[in-house]
Amino acid sequence: MNLDIYEKSKIVKKKLRRLEGLPTLPPIVQRLNKLIENEETSFSQIAELIEKDQVITSKILRLANSAFYGFPKKISTVQNALVLLGVNIIKVLIITSSIFEIIYKEDVSLWEHSIGVATCARILAEKLEIKEPQEIATAGLLHDLGKIVEKVSFKVEYKKMEELVQEGKTSLLAEKEIFGLDHAEMGAFLMKIWNLPDRLIEAVGAHHELEKAKNFKKESALIHLANILIHARGYGNSLYKKVPSLDQNALKILNFNLSETKEIFLILEPKLYELKFFTEELKKDIKITL
């Protein structure tokens, strides 16, 4: 059976829509969405809902305090996190903590790659004075969400795709051939289902094809560049070891001069140490709960 790409993408999307075989989101996300819909909901009401779940609360606080957000002050309550990071980021953190738990059991290097890109994106956003660097860090955290879904929910197809990559195909083409859509499109598609903000969806969806970005070109270019810099530094790993290709337009959109790269690596390096210790700690905790 040889389905064309369009047919394949329809099947994959249908599966994603029904969330078949996907890591289930904690029910709290649904309740949170309902609560946020009501404009009169206050931060303290949201905090109250989240704090009922001790496990999620501690996970959120841990992620909020990690190096990819880079807050100097310790965030010690959910309300505090809501004020500093906003509802959307908290939602992403709840989603992230449940999805990534699976991934760092299976593939720590993809987890490391993701938090590396999040941190690098935040550093770049601060340097280039792009608003809400923490939200951009969150886009970095989720930029390879599609890869996680491929790996966890489409195991057989994922193997086939790996074979194509080993035969020399670029991973983006291999993904399109097998799934009908690549990991960037898949991640963005899921993020839409989860009602995440357009700024994040576009940055994730366009991080390999900048021309797809419409309203959030800077954000997309930033994730594109952060992904390349982390690949270049060799922190963590995604499917391929080779540095992905750089779209020149990203530099133009961001008005970024490559002579500034060394400075970025200098700021990044100490943060990578923090991330490494953070991941080691997570690994220890997972072993205990297993």
Binding site: L229, L246, L251
Partner: peptide
């Protein structure tokens, strides 16, 4: 451009 990134690294 990528080679310039490599050089600074």
């Amino acid at each position: 451009n990528l080679l310039e990134i490599k050089k600074s690294l």
